[in-house]
């Protein structure tokens, strides 16, 4: 099964919005990394990742988001995350990733932050 089909890309005001519609355990986390790497290869600079339909995230997926956010910042862009369930917020806080990646309550607030 290819979980990239559950990762929908759209664009608003020049910002790529990646909406994840699957839980992010190891298998889907690898696919998330591939999707994000493709965005980097396409020279996309501004990305919002909407996690409103995700109820689980593991450290591999968090690491992929952190890594791409860091690389985008090096080229003047950024990756912001929005709409995390409470347990996802706890995972980001536990790892410390919430101090590295900007997290917003809603997609609109993440878009407005660019």
């Amino acid at each position: 099964m290819d979980s990239t089909k559950l990762m929908k890309l759209r664009e608003e005001s020049g910002i790529k919005i990646l909406e994840i519609k699957t839980d992010l355990s190891s298998y889907a986390a690898s696919d998330l990394r591939k999707v994000l790497e493709d965005l980097l290869a396409e020279k996309v600079e501004r990305v919002v990742v909407n996690l409103s339909q995700v109820s689980h995230i593991n450290s591999t997926a968090v690491g992929a988001l952190v890594g791409v956010a860091k690389r985008l910042r090096q080229s003047g862009g950024d990756l912001k995350i929005c709409a995390l369930a409470d347990n996802l917020t706890r995972t980001f806080n536990l790892i410390g990733a919430s101090s590295v990646v900007e997290i917003y309550e809603s997609e609109n607030s993440a878009l407005a932050a660019f």
Binding site: S59, A64, V66, G67, K70, T91, L94, I95, G96
Partner: peptide
């Protein structure tokens, strides 16, 4: 391990939880 690390958080999570 640091918050900026892309990998290496797994066992830290296990130990913490």
């Amino acid at each position: 391990r640091s918050p900026c690390s892309e990998r290496g958080h797994g066992i830290f999570i296990v130990k913490s939880l």
